[in-house]
Design a protein around this nucleic acid. Structure first.
Lengths: 271, 271
DNA sequence: GCATGGGTATCGTAGATCGATACAACCGTT
DNA sequence: AACGGTTGTATCGATCTACGATACCCATGC
């Protein structure tokens, strides 16, 4: 049957991995510093004082002062409305807009996901493959969800998500195992699988079925099915997730009903 | 009636506008350059070659080379999958995630907007006030929409949007007029109002009614009602939009039905 | 074969950025 | 009301980063 095909060809890693490393002399330390400052808010999403910024970015207070002033002028930081400290600025959203708009996959996916969400009545996500993590790019909720389940830009570990496993299933074993090996195998819920052998088993299952599913591995009470979006040579670039609640569905019913829809949507996006 | 109250107190501008300007000696030119490079994609959302980057950011090819290499390493740029040039990188989404997560308004708004969308069955947006533009932060579509109507991070002129006018209505006349004056009054559709007097009239209407609406002023066939979210002293920070199609609704019916819902949601968010 | 436009690498110099330090304004506490 | 603790702001000479011209390699296209 068709759901058992299409995932036989696996992605063959190129001879030499395109290491994104560069001559140190071409790396602009002072430019990087600004981004380290912005990245400080990934660890503590709240207003940061100059001293906290300096500490988080591992720079002197003077350097922090200059960077902060510069980013305030540019709009990538804003003074906290609470009076003290700075927070990420609205200008950041302009850049994410550019990102989404520049990515043809996102544009092609949008109508397909909208349609899919209407058909399913469940939450539908598009995630992007990024090594040991996946990155949610489009999220279409329908019910009331946890706040984080609504945010695009969120990252989750590849090994513990349905989309991640669907994408691992596209890679050859060597590559997939290597990603699991480099992952920090910390459980997200009591049900998260952290044994590489068990994970591999699920990946092989996904390879056989053409889709992956996880049961309460990233959020208790949640079931997710997902199918990978691939480009040439079966290389995974993203995945389409359909997520539902175990309060409303049995695992079996949910899979039977939604897996084919995820697979179909993912296939429509693959090329 | 209640929809005609609550907007009487207007925001009083503080004595001195908080000009975000800084001693030139504290502004890091080399840091800013990196952002200019990223901002190049706002004008041309497609892969850019080194030479194009250099030209767009007004820097030498050598400088562009260094900045691009640095941003590639950091993940804010990626090599274009088409082989040549670079495009915005996934790491940008991490920063927008930080932004959304750091902003208490977004978090509080999320469940309210989800509920509102379920009630309405129409597109629901949260926009943020940003001087002559508004910035969409949360967008909950329900029907099939144009691609751009789904993207958060999109900016629109304040003067021509329902949310923008609802926010102008919170300001005192001097301030509101000044924003209109500084706006580039270019029509988005044949129906966009560009006469400051007419715009002011609509703003006053919004002030009286507690909500604003626009008919096909930013997209033909679209009607939008919006109510402002304010913080202390009635200062506008954002707006809640409900957008529908004139193919399905008469303007009157749409306003009657959805304006009270927008007002109620906005009030729940104001503080 | 050569021109064109991509990306990459090198190097000496100019000047932008460094960071210690001092200052100012605001807390809450004693 | 003086205090210690924050916060953010401002200054300045020395150092070391980043500048940009240039040369280079490798594709394409004709």
């Amino acid at each position: 049957m068709s759901t058992q095909q299409g995932f036989e060809r696996r992605y063959q890693a190129p001879e030499r991995e395109p290491i994104i490393e560069v001559d140190e002399r071409l790396f602009l330390k002072s430019a990087a510093r600004s981004f380290y400052v912005l990245e400080a808010f990934a660890r503590s999403p709240r207003p940061l004082s100059l001293a906290e910024v300096a500490k988080a970015a591992k720079i002197s207070k003077s350097a922090a002062q200059r960077v902060v002033q510069t980013l305030l002028v540019l709009g990538y930081l804003e003074r906290s409305p609470t009076g003290t400290g700075v927070v990420p600025g609205r200008r950041i959203l302009d850049r994410s807009f550019d990102y989404l708009r520049s990515n043809p996959l996102i544009e092609r996916a949008t109508p397909i996901l909208t349609e899919l969400r209407k058909t399913c009545g469940e939450r539908v996500d598009l995630s992007l493959f990024d090594d040991v993590t996946i990155l949610y790019a489009i999220r279409l909720q329908s019910k009331r969800e946890t706040f984080y389940a609504t945010l695009s830009g969120r990252r989750m570990p590849t090994f513990a998500t349905a989309g991640g496993r669907a994408m691992l299933a596209c890679l050859d074993d060597r590559h997939a195992d290597e990603i699991v090996r480099r992952s920090k195998l910390a459980p997200l819920t009591p049900k998260t699988l952290v044994d590489p052998a068990l994970i591999r088993q699920r990946v092989e299952e996904a390879r056989r079925d053409g889709y992956a599913y996880v049961l309460e591995e990233s959020l208790m009470g949640e079931i997710v099915v997902a199918a990978a979006v691939v480009k040439e040579r079966n290389m995974p670039v993203g995945a389409i997730h359909i997520a539902g609640s175990l309060a409303e569905w049995s695992a079996e019913d949910f899979r039977k009903r939604f897996a084919p829809l995820a697979i179909e949507a993912a296939r429509a996006l693959s090329g």
